[in-house]
Design a protein around this nucleic acid. Sequence first.
DNA 1: TATTTGTGAAACTAATCGGTTGCAAATATA
DNA 2: TATATTTGCAACCGATTAGTTTCACAAATA
Lengths: 106, 106
Amino acid sequence: MRRDIFQAVADPTRRAIIVLIALQAMTPNAIANNFNTTRQAVSKHLRILTECEIVKQEQKGREIYYSLEIDKMKEIDKWLEQFRKIWETKFNQLDKLLSTIKKQKK
Amino acid sequence: MRRDIFQAVADPTRRAIIVLIALQAMTPNAIANNFNTTRQAVSKHLRILTECEIVKQEQKGREIYYSLEIDKMKEIDKWLEQFRKIWETKFNQLDKLLSTIKKQKK
DNA sequence: TATTTGTGAAACTAATCGGTTGCAAATATA
DNA sequence: TATATTTGCAACCGATTAGTTTCACAAATA
């Protein structure tokens, strides 16, 4: 089972869970109440997110609070970096072109 | 068939293709030569990427050149934005804490 | 014209996915 | 102690996935 953050984030429900627990830790039941799925389905998603280390657990009595390991999100950001360079270059080229046109108008 | 950019990017081969054609347009055969898969498998990935509008085609004779629609990558960046805010806040809090400790030492 | 080359698409397969159902373990409450 | 609550996990199901094989079509080339 080869899981990485990109696969984790591919599922829309999983993305919604990530957003939901980004600011505050929540129990599986509480998370499930926010969606149109069963507690078990959410539990499965949480297991996948845990395997990817995107999520951390904290046990309090019989409840388990899940929260986001925000630093893991940076891995996606890191991969995007190479494209950011390209679109910044493109922007600069456009900028250059625009100023050339401006000069020609003068 | 519900395809979005997150699903498109979930597959490692697809990510590699995206990186490969980011800087220069390539034919399916040329792309396939860079991987350990058949031309047909690459062709299937290209179809998915085309459906997601991550990739654009340009026909030249019997060859079809595929290149990256770089702006689509910004959609991922846009989704990451909300987490970037959180980790910047965290960084600021850490910064604050560090300067507090510094003051206490004085 | 006959052959080679570049490509998309259909049919098929094994593996995986997301979800449901049901159960067991642990904790809380009566 | 008996019961209710919270949870993880295994078994199963239908749908989807990535890949292969095969075929058909169009363009280049001999």
